[in-house]
């Protein structure tokens, strides 16, 4: 058949072209990354100059403490996005994470108020959180429902159960553990801040230091390739949803300690969680979500809310800014991905 196909001498120029293209892409990614970091720096600089008390130690520690809950949740969300892939429509996402936290908080506070001890109550909260995560995993992996829809449905299940449990009231709670979390401190750093530091360290080591983390990225980045490498894609994806449920449970204990109660309305945190997890991708050379990037974005979002507060700007603005950030990040990353999909 094609016995005399013309062979080309074009190999060299092909390679050069590809090299130029990839260099261009790397340059574009660098510009986006540096641009994002410069924008963050500019906003921070503005607050430092114009927001009274922004740089005080007290204020900064306050921000870290406030960020603890958001941070723990954002790690769960980040894990789900890593394992499910960061495709905006079909990739991994856990919309139920904030509502799950609300449910866990209600379980924890209710059990405490009924007289069960810290140990049992914490265990129950974690069990509930992971069960909700498992429900997400079942819907996404077992039934093959788009994560966006599956977790939206589970969001409503969790929110409904929380309301049933609390009758939409505030359930007060106090316990030795909560006491330590509220007022304990070590080396001058409060317990809540420690919670964020320790949790961050664990997540960063697991996701960026272990082969498990590496495989998680492979599963999300190219499921076919992961399968060809002998990895069980369903296992890893399911794991991320259960981990996300676990994060929700841990965050619920922190939120109960901060408010000394379980209060309705925790679902409002969802937007911030999503913004933090997505925003984190701009800190990565590969444009993928990373735990370190998520931590930076969590602190950035915390500082943003704090700066607005100090400037006497209505906190409602923060929501708008977060929404705009999500749009911006998603637009930038889909743009970056679109230009590389053409090969």
């Amino acid at each position: 058949m094609s016995a005399t196909v013309l062979h080309t001498e074009a190999g060299v120029s092909d390679e050069k072209q590809a090299a130029a293209k990839s260099a261009g892409r790397r340059f574009g990614a660098l510009v986006v990354r540096l641009g994002a970091i410069a924008a963050f720096a500019a906003i921070m600089a503005y607050f430092v100059i114009f927001a009274p008390g922004f740089t005080s130690t007290f204020n900064l520690i306050n921000v870290v403490e406030q960020s603890a809950i958001l941070g723990v949740l954002a790690y769960g969300m980040t894990a789900v996005i890593i394992g499910g892939g960061s495709d905006v429509t079909e990739g991994g996402i856990d919309l139920s994470i904030a509502a799950n936290m609300g449910l866990c908080a209600a379980v924890y506070a209710t059990l405490l108020s009924m007289g069960y001890g810290d140990f049992l109550s914490v265990l129950a909260a974690i069990a509930v959180g992971m069960a909700v995560g498992a429900l997400n995993a079942l819907a996404v992996v077992g039934l093959g429902i788009l994560p966006l829809l599956a977790t939206l449905a589970v969001l409503n299940v969790a929110a409904g159960m929380e309301l049933t449990l609390t009758q939409n009231t505030v359930v007060g709670a106090s316990s030795p553990l909560l006491g330590v979390l509220v007022s304990g401190s070590f080396l001058g750093i409060s317990a809540l801040a420690w919670a964020l530091i320790v949790f961050s360290a664990i997540m960063i080591v697991i996701v960026h230091g272990t082969s498990f983390g590496l495989r998680l990225y492979a599963v999300g980045g190219h499921p076919e390739a992961a399968r060809a490498a002998g990895l069980s894609v369903p296992f890893y994806v399911s794991f991320t949803y259960v981990l996300s449920g676990f994060c929700a449970a841990v965050a619920s204990i922190l939120t109960v300690s901060r408010l000394s109660a379980s209060t309705p309305g925790s679902g409002e945190l969802l937007l911030s969680v999503l913004a933090a997890a997505l925003l984190g991708t701009v800190f990565s050379r590969r444009f993928v979500p990373t735990m370190g990037g998520t931590l930076l974005s969590v602190l950035f979002i915390g500082l943003l809310a704090n700066g607005f507060q100090l400037l006497n700007v209505s906190s409602y603005w923060v929501n708008g800014v977060q929404g705009a950030l999500i749009l911006l990040v998603v637009a930038i990353t889909s743009f970056a991905r679109g230009s590389e999909g053409s090969r």
Binding site: L214, Y217, A218, G221, H222, A228, R286
Partner: peptide
């Protein structure tokens, strides 16, 4: 198909 993870 080049079964490799693009971001690896």
């Amino acid at each position: 198909d080049r079964l490799l993870v693009p971001t690896a």
